[in-house]
Write a protein that binds this DNA or RNA. Structure first.
Length: 283
DNA sequence: ATTTCATCCTGGAGGC
DNA sequence: TGCCTCCAGGATGAAA
């Protein structure tokens, strides 16, 4: 699903396609996905006439900023897609927002499962989170994985919960989802059920490194398409075939040929190699 | 304060 | 083929 690498790829695609373009209309088809503000109808009108000044990513969220100082924040959820299409191209089912551009194209937010959310900001202050940012929970996000030093990471791991569950907690470290959490733990040789605080320092440092390297590789390969994910051009990610454990239950480990196992932690399936990923115990 | 858990939602998969 | 049930899971907000 759209985790950090997928959102980064969408952001890169959007930068090529829509930067500097003028907004001619902003249309909300499915109001249920708009989380902020309540009177979003007024806000959307204010963007008309602005140009798209910046496309940014924070964790798994996408930010499209306008020259008028406003911005739209998009959280893709499970099945959200952001596509650039010709404005007169057929509109598929579950298209919730359309941002018409001056060049005859448009940005479309498509999300069958509707776990995605959208916030409109009249003014975006990127330095000091204001009330609007707070409404979107941006202040509760943990650091970007690439900004986390080994020392900081060892602090993050001070918790009794399973490390897998902990890595998915966006308030601790922001951007990992189920796929890359499992893959990072495999690369670091750590059992997903290991209590976070029980991980020895050397393994913690290794996990800190593997998280970054897995994310970087996934970004380079266009992210992972299991089913729904598409980049801004509608293309699938190519990282699926590089997955070592995720959704490979029962199939042989690439390293030792032991069957990959599946375990439910915090209500999420975790995939791991029982031989390559020892369970560290004791606090 | 921290952590767990049900909930949102649709489409795809598997059973019969 | 068609119906039914189950399942996937990111983030949230309530509950423990």
């Amino acid at each position: 699903m759209p985790e950090l690498p997928e959102v980064e790829n969408i952001a890169q695609g959007l930068r090529h396609e829509i930067l500097k373009c003028g907004v001619t209309r902003m249309q909300v088809i499915q109001p249920a996905i708009i989380r902020f503000p309540r009177n979003w109808r007024k806000i959307t009108k204010r963007f008309v006439g602005d140009n798209i000044e910046q496309v940014a990513r924070r964790a798994k969220r996408l930010i499209i900023a306008f020259t008028g100082g406003g911005a739209i924040l998009i959280q893709l959820g499970m099945t959200g897609k952001v596509l650039v299409a010709d404005a007169d191209a057929p509109v598929v089912k579950h298209t919730h927002v359309r941002i018409r551009l001056s060049n005859g194209r448009e940005v479309r937010l498509i999300d069958p499962r509707r776990f995605g959310r959208v916030w409109f900001f009249a003014h975006l202050d990127s330095v000091h989170p204001d009330a609007e940012m707070e409404a979107a929970g941006m202040g509760r996000l943990g650091p970007e994985p690439f900004d986390v030093t080994p020392k900081k990471f060892r602090e993050i791991l001070q918790s009794s919960r399973a490390v897998k569950t902990h890595l998915l907690d966006q308030s601790r470290i922001a951007g990992l989802g189920n796929i890359y959490a499992d893959e990072s733990l495999f690369a670091a040789g750590i059992h997903p059920a290991t209590p976070a605080a029980a991980i020895p320092p050397a393994q913690a440092d290794k996990l800190c490194r593997t998280i970054k390297s897995i994310l970087r590789r996934a970004i380079r390969h266009g992210g992972t398409t299991l089913l729904d994910y598409r980049n801004a051009y509608g293309e699938m990610g190519r990282f699926l075939k590089m997955l070592k454990v995720y959704q490979r239950t029962g199939r042989p480990c690439h390293v030792c040929h032991t069957p990959i196992q599946r375990l439910v932690l915090g209500g999420r399936s975790s995939h791991y190699c029982p031989k390559c990923q020892p369970l560290f115990q004791k606090i």
